[in-house]
Nucleic acid binder design. Structure first.
Lengths: 142, 142
DNA sequence: CCTACAAGCTTCAGTGGGTAGAGGTTCAAG
DNA sequence: CTTGAACCTCTACCCACTGAAGCTTGTAGG
């Protein structure tokens, strides 16, 4: 029987995160001691490890929920899991493409800066004038 | 005098987002009509355009705050703005590197899947067993 | 058996960067 | 003067956690 702290250490998760996963139903409610502390089995550790590894690969929690579901029923065909992974791969590829466009523009900005005063700073100029932009980037973030 | 809707259309921003920027002090409070509606000048439009373009390049709002500050004082040396841009470039590069590692692992997972049932699904197997992982990725997301 | 104290517990609030909706008011055209 | 699109404020929600306040439990040493 493992305490939540042991689970946290062995999976590289914060204690609060484990409780959060339980709260949102990603992990089942574990057994408790008489005093109300959580105690976990090795199976529950495996499940958490699965979740963490999936998160490290960038899967959103909803996708992980589906993957857990699939992992619980070994008779289902694998195509569903494969589809989720492919979707994730596509999203990663999209993000890479977007970030590479940003990198190009940022490099241009930074390299053209002549280091004088802000009045004719290349960085600020580019930010001010969108028309100097090489790329379209309608979406932002992440 | 421009309405908030015109500003939104001309900068590709949602109306709510403009009000949000005002609320967090990124944009100054504009003038109002007798009835309480916001009215903007072209200068204010320029400022918003600057913010939006910076966001599209992935700058966080705090960095944009600094950049706006610098843009307001043309006598300051440009190095500060350059530093912010360089920091942003570094972060973009880091994210690209991380995402490329993810892409490699996801590709491996997806390509090795034989399409049978979940019991021996390669995707789920990799997620279950972290030791099959080629890369370290301690940080997740974005 | 008693005491320390690390580690557990619950609950609430905050992060970034917005977005959505309810419910009400104002502006401008016809 | 009426209509209706666009405006207003306010609140709550998104993701995936993280931190802290204030309290209780478990365990090791004496």
């Amino acid at each position: 029987m493992l305490t939540i702290g042991t689970l946290a250490r062995r999976t590289g998760t914060k204690v609060q995160t484990i409780r959060y996963y339980e709260q949102i139903g990603l992990l089942p409610e574990p057994g408790r001691t008489a005093g109300g502390q959580r105690r976990y089995s090795e199976d529950e550790l495996d499940r958490l490890a699965f979740v963490r590894h999936s998160r490290q690969l960038g899967f959103p929690l909803d996708a992980i929920r589906e993957l857990l579901e699939l992992a619980d029923y070994p008779h289902k065909p694998c195509t569903a899991a494969d589809k989720i992974a492919q979707r994730q791969l596509q999203q990663v590829e999209q993000r890479i493409a977007r970030l590479e466009a940003l990198r190009a523009e940022l490099e241009r900005m930074v390299h053209e800066c002549n280091g004088s005063n802000t009045a004719d700073c290349r960085v600020l100029e580019v930010l001010r004038d969108h028309s100097e932009c090489l790329t379209d980037h309608d979406e932002i973030g992440s």
